[in-house]
């Protein structure tokens, strides 16, 4: 069966990739996949596009299915004398660099600022009407604690973090708070423990504690997820219908495109203003 590219097909591929199909739909779709090479190609293409353009999810379903002969050609190339010499050349430079301990300030990325300026102009020029009755609806729309990353690994022995996460998933938030609070700041999962802790306080409706915890996350230096702190701080303010403080928090996520939910934060600020 040839697969013609239709809106319906793209929608099905997306729902399949994001796990939004029902059991029966999924089974039917997988039967079609098994018998339709073109459909498989369409799916692989969509995975590639999502992997390239959507940083928030991992769609690597075919990660280990790359063509062996192509991999072997590359491996042979990398093992050839020519490439080994080039690799040694890089390592030599590394050695000299560390010996010299030279520190040169990297060139400024002007293009990035042009890009940001362009985005700001775009957002400023688009006029936007929307009124809301209750800011808590935004909280309901944007907060889903089930989407928090999981660090439980089947073959690994249980540790404090995994026990805390299990307690959280079972709805034992008080127990989860006690366990997450014991994670040391030196633990590599510490930022995630603070995130979970904030989520626990939110679930327990201890909003002030939740806000303080998310602020603590936002203030963590050198963490990949610190901007989630400001985002969730804003969400709790919205839950409390405190528009002014929500805007203040959201604005912190509107300067850097790498920040968590950067675009959503920009839109929300505009909606709330």
């Amino acid at each position: 069966m040839a697969s013609k590219l239709t809106e319906k097909l793209l929608e099905d591929l997306e729902r399949y990739l994001k796990g939004k199909m029902t059991g029966i739909e999924r089974q039917q779709f997988e039967e079609n996949l098994a018998s339709d090479e073109e459909l498989r190609n369409e799916l692989r293409l969509q995975i590639g596009l999502y992997e390239t353009f959507d940083n928030s999810e991992d769609y690597s379903l075919f990660k280990d299915n790359l063509n062996r002969s192509e991999i072997n050609v590359l491996k042979a190339k990398l093992r050839s004398k020519e490439y080994q010499d080039l690799s040694i050349n890089i390592r030599k430079a590394e050695k000299v660099y560390f010996n010299q301990k030279t520190k040169v300030k990297p060139i400024q990325k002007y293009y990035r600022y042009f890009g940001i300026a362009g985005m700001i102009i775009l957002f400023v020029t688009i006029y936007f009407f929307q009124s809301v009755n209750s800011y808590a609806t935004y909280y309901n729309q944007y907060v889903n604690w089930e989407e928090l990353p999981s660090f439980i690994e089947k073959s690994q022995p249980k540790n404090t973090f995994s026990n805390a996460e299990i307690a959280f998933k079972r709805g034992n938030y008080t127990e989860a708070v006690a366990l997450f609070s014991t994670i040391e700041a030196t633990d590599e999962l510490y930022p995630y423990s603070v995130l979970y802790l904030g989520a626990c306080y939110d679930k327990l409706d201890e909003n002030k504690k939740a806000i303080a915890t998310f602020q603590q996350l936002a203030n963590l230096e050198n963490s990949l997820i610190s901007s989630q702190g400001t985002w969730y701080e804003a969400m709790i303010y919205l839950k409390m219908n405190d528009k002014e403080n929500a805007i203040k928090a959201l604005q912190k996520n509107t300067d850097n495109p790498d920040d968590f939910n950067y675009q959503k934060a920009k839109i929300l600020v505009r909606k709330l203003d």
Binding site: K92, A93, E94, V96, Y97, T102, K103, V104, P106
Partner: peptide, 12 residues
């Protein structure tokens, strides 16, 4: 040139 690349771009 490789050392120049290292010096300029590795810190980031």
């Amino acid at each position: 040139v490789t050392l120049e690349i290292y010096t300029k771009l590795f810190p980031k």
